[in-house]
Design a protein around this nucleic acid. Sequence first.
DNA 1: GGAGTATGCAACCATGTAGTTGCACAAAGG
DNA 2: CCTTTGTGCAACTACATGGTTGCATACTCC
Lengths: 109, 109
Amino acid sequence: MRDQAVFAAIGDPTRREIVDLLAKRGAMTATEMDDHFPLTRQAVVKHLRVLESAGIAVSERRGNEVFYALQPGSLSKATAWLERVGTSWDRRLSALDKHLSAKPKRAVR
Amino acid sequence: MRDQAVFAAIGDPTRREIVDLLAKRGAMTATEMDDHFPLTRQAVVKHLRVLESAGIAVSERRGNEVFYALQPGSLSKATAWLERVGTSWDRRLSALDKHLSAKPKRAVR
DNA sequence: GGAGTATGCAACCATGTAGTTGCACAAAGG
DNA sequence: CCTTTGTGCAACTACATGGTTGCATACTCC
């Protein structure tokens, strides 16, 4: 289940910033991105590799440099999970209240 | 920005399973959940605390035991981010192709 | 070919964190 | 009361991982 990787990947704030940047500006090289973060190029590359192995980003060598871009549709499963889980209990309002009022178990004064 | 916490929280696979369980079965105590995972009760509690501080779960003491349930609407911002980022580059198809064909920089044979 | 620029690799450090264990505290109920 | 059951706290371990540094390798262009 490679969904795991997607959630883990976007779990890191820096990685989300990278994704934001790529979404905003389109394809870039790691060296370019490097200017946008207080990080080493190597650190950026590491993050990009994580994003890539999670299927969120793709890379392509173009002569001397390597461009990274976002992979369309790669977040759909994650979005679906959030939607599903979210609505499943939004619909029943507060599950806590419901459960507690319905199941006193032992008498509670 | 407490969104950070939400993404970090759902980044852990065990925590997502807990969320799934809570979504499916409604409110439960940590001791009950304990049966569903190969974990100590304490480990489950730790996860629940993380979920709670991220605003995803809520707890309520009821006599001897503490029930945990999901907090409605707590994932909306995360979902929104995924939606936004996702569609932003889905719409322009593969940003990599577009960028590369539009910006050869130096002549590439 | 040699300088310049970009990427790749590997070792290393430090911190965060998932998980356990042990024990103390709190509430019910006979 | 005293036992049972559930929760809370704290210390500790182990491993993952974000980050750096140093150097090697690849490509381009004069």
